[in-house]
Every structure is written in C-alpha cells, then in structure tokens.
C-alpha cells in the first residue's frame, strides 16, 4: 500500500496507457468481424477458408506477433500502432468465428418470416439478424475484451508501456507490490470493460431479460 501511494501518479498514467491500447482493438475487431462472420454464416463456400484462416491467426504467439507486425507494416517496434494491429488481429481470430456462430444461430424460420413480411435484404440484416445474433455475439465479445486487456501487458517486455510495465519494472527492481498492483489492476480493468459490454447489451437487447424472467 505504501508503494502504491508513492507511485499513484505513475500507476494512473500506465492505467490510461493500458486503456488506450485495449479499447481500440476491441472495437475494431468487432467492426471487422461482424461483416466477415455474416459472410461466413451465409455462404458454406466462404465459411471454411474464413474460419480456418482466422483460427490459424490465433495460433501465432503474441510476443512474436508484436515483432513480426512492425517488420511487415513498417511501424516502429514500440509504437502503439503495432500493439493495436496485433490485438485487433487476435480479436478477429476469435470474433469472426463467434460472429459466424451468432449469425448461424438466428433461426431459419424467423429469417423466413422476416423475408415473407417484406423486409429487404439490408433491412433483414439490421433489424432482424443483427439483433438476434446479439446474445451469441456478446459472449464472444466478452472473451475478446477480457483476453485483450490481459494481452496488452505482454507488450511491456518490448517496451510498450501499459500496466504490464509494472511487471517488468517490479521484476527488475525486485518490488513485489508493483507486480501485485499490476495484476490486480489488469484484472479489474478486464472485469470493468466486461461489465460495460454486458450493460450495453442489456440496454440494446431488452427482450432478452423479459424472456428469461418469464
């Protein structure tokens, strides 16, 4: 506690850095994965290559990816762009499959009914498929949110500052309190963003609550 009160300013700065690195990749991967997942769900021919491709992406370890990406895209090794690109790729690796599953979970007879009542293709997507895919999509998004927040810390070993810096600093200078603070704050941030996802979903999908209460 003593350590924390003396270093409150630094910890606050690292926390802000951490949020700045975690939130964009979560949103970006959602934005990219929803259309890709819809494509995969709608076309058996696209499904396999899309899902295997993004699935293999997940197999690439994070630390090496943080090093391969700057080499490929010409970013500098320690730039936030590296981190955000890598984490967006990871997010997509999980979310494309999640979104494909989500869109496949929309019952065929509901799509049929919506088409029969004269929804256009576009209207069907926005007002029927997307809301109904919501619950399954949410569960993948929550996984991506939590693991992104946790993965951001890995960047600290190549010098990208985040709450992970508390680990590398604490280890080199032999300060337990620094590492423990980092672990606790990372978990807290992960759960806070997760809770935010759940709240947003509850607001956007009121029928979910009504039905589960019934």
């Amino acid at each position: 506690m003593n350590w924390l009160s003396q270093n409150l300013h630094i910890v606050g700065q690292l926390l802000a850095d951490h949020l700045f690195l975690s939130i964009p990749p979560i949103l970006l991967s959602l934005l990219i994965s929803v259309p890709l997942g819809r494509l995969a769900a709608g076309s058996p021919r696209l499904r396999t290559p899309l899902l295997t491709g993004t699935g293999l992406l997940y197999a690439i370890p994070s630390l090496p990816l943080f090093i391969i990406i700057p080499a490929l895209f010409g970013f500098s090794l320690r730039s936030p762009a590296t981190m955000i690109t890598a984490l967006t790729l990871y997010g997509c690796a999980l979310l494309v499959r999640g979104a494909a599953d989500a869109f496949s979970s929309v019952p065929q007879d509901v799509r049929l009914a919506a088409a029969a009542t004269g929804h256009s293709r576009w209207g069907l997507f926005w007002t029927v498929e997307l809301p109904l895919a919501g619950p399954v999509l949410l569960s993948s998004l929550r996984v991506v949110t939590v693991s992104t927040v946790s993965l951001v810390t890995v960047g600290a070993v190549i010098g990208i500052s985040s709450l992970g810096t508390l680990f590398t600093d604490g280890f080199q200078r032999n300060i337990d309190a620094s590492i423990v603070t980092g672990i606790v704050l990372t978990v807290v941030v992960a759960f806070a963003l997760d809770a935010l996802c759940v709240l947003a979903a509850r607001w956007a999908m009121p029928w979910q609550r009504a039905v589960s209460r019934a």
Partner: peptide, 30 residues
C-alpha cells in the same frame, strides 16, 4: 419482391414471430 411480399399476408407455423419484438411491434411490422 419486397413490395409484393408486403402486399400479401403470410402466416407461418408457430406464428413465425420475431422474438426480439413485442407482440404489438410484431403486428405493426409491415
């Protein structure tokens, strides 16, 4: 297609209702 469908009533097995819309909104769809 779309205009034609809106001009014809369609009743499906089990109603074919949209689960995320209230009863009144379902009826008001078209």
């Amino acid at each position: 297609r779309v205009k034609l469908r809106r001009s014809i009533g369609y009743v499906l097995q089990a109603g074919g209702l949209l689960p995320h819309r209230s009863v009144a909104d379902n009826v008001a769809t078209v």
